[in-house]
């Protein structure tokens, strides 16, 4: 029951953090110049005062700020994320419509980066100082150091335009009418490039970390003991070093998984992937306050949840760690 108490405590803290974030976001978003009514007047290519007043009234922007804050917070308390007057849709619907695409993209990218990162990092560590180590480290750096939007476009040009292997935009073939397995395959085809582009960036980070972690564990006493026992180096690397070295990598990855959800803005933009990162960026550009706040909230909640899950896994894997960690 220790675990249960731990989870409840963490959830409690998470709720407090989320509440504070909700308040901060509210003021952040309002601090930006311009408001949604002005934006819509701008887009309309016209806009008399009546038009602006109508919109502001509709959006509730004519009410005092504290009233708006109160309405917003009390809505959130009941898990009601509000309504986007610009899009005439409840915010939660808009987000839920986009969330699966984001989860798929970030999930795939997460998986790719973790597996590749751990494997490459372990390889590099085993061959530390040799050319294969340098090759892996450099390759990882290339993906880390090249702006993501540049890689994204480059891969579209190579794999979509020149080679014609993969579709360059979208979630699935529009008007393809696929169902079942065919649809899944179609989505996977669309997923490959964005997931790799996003994943390779993180691969670089995990590979570096895995390498460092392996090297550190390799010097630990229990590894020396294992050598003393006469175990073969391959077995030691696999059973003793890699297994222990992977823990901090997984922890970091878990922390970043939550961030990924809100952090795929660039990838979603360049590949026209219909996820919430794009929704957020577009909402910012239109000052669609309720949507912007909603996405912020949901992605922050994701971070809290992912962190918690990581901690739980960690505790299960490594029971030595106390609840306070």
């Amino acid at each position: 029951m220790d675990l249960l108490r731990f989870v409840l405590m963490r959830l409690g803290k998470g709720v407090i953090v989320l509440f504070a974030i909700a308040v901060l976001n509210f003021f952040l978003v309002r601090a930006a110049p311009g408001d949604p009514a002005q934006v819509m007047a701008g887009e309309a290519g016209a806009g008399d005062e009546v038009f602006l007043d109508q919109l502001r009234q509709q959006f509730g922007l004519d009410r005092p700020l504290y009233e708006q804050l109160w309405a917003y917070l009390s809505n959130y308390a009941t898990l009601d994320l509000g309504f986007s007057y610009r899009q005439q849709q409840p915010v939660l619907d808009l987000i839920l419509e986009r969330l699966p695409a984001t989860l798929l993209l970030t999930g795939a990218a997460f998986f790719i980066s973790l597996v590749l990162g751990v494997v490459l990092g372990a390889l590099a560590a085993r061959r530390v100082g040799r050319w294969s180590d340098s090759a892996i480290t450099t390759l990882a750096l290339v993906f880390y150091a090249t702006p993501l939007f540049w890689i994204a476009l480059m891969s579209q040009i190579v794999f979509s335009l020149k080679l014609g292997w993969l579709p360059n935009v979208g979630f699935e073939t529009v008007g393809g009418g696929y169902t079942g397995i065919d649809r899944a395959l179609d989505i996977i085809q669309h997923l490959i490039m964005p997931a790799l582009t996003l994943g390779l960036f993180f691969t670089a980070i995990y590979a570096r970390m895995m390498r460092a972690s392996m090297l550190e564990v390799a010097g630990a006493d229990f590894v020396k003991t294992a050598y003393a026992k006469g175990l073969s180096p391959a077995v030691i690397t696999r059973r003793h070093i890699a297994r222990n070295a992977i823990l901090p990598v997984v922890t970091l990855a878990g922390l970043q998984a939550g961030q990924l959800v809100g952090g795929a803005i660039l990838t979603e933009t360049v590949f026209a992937w219909p996820g919430i990162g794009r929704l957020m960026f577009e909402a910012l550009a239109q000052r669609d306050y309720s949507v912007l706040l909603g996405v912020f909230f949901i992605s922050s909640a994701m971070v809290v949840i992912f962190n918690l899950v990581t901690d739980i896994i960690y505790r299960i894997v490594d029971p030595r760690i106390g609840a306070s960690a």
Partner: peptide
């Protein structure tokens, strides 16, 4: 640590964009 956590919970790239936009 709560304060730090708070900042780590907001998606960082999104936060950077908003700050520059403001």
């Amino acid at each position: 640590m709560r304060f730090t956590e708070f900042f780590q919970t907001i998606p960082s790239f999104a936060l950077a964009i908003v700050v520059v936009a403001i």
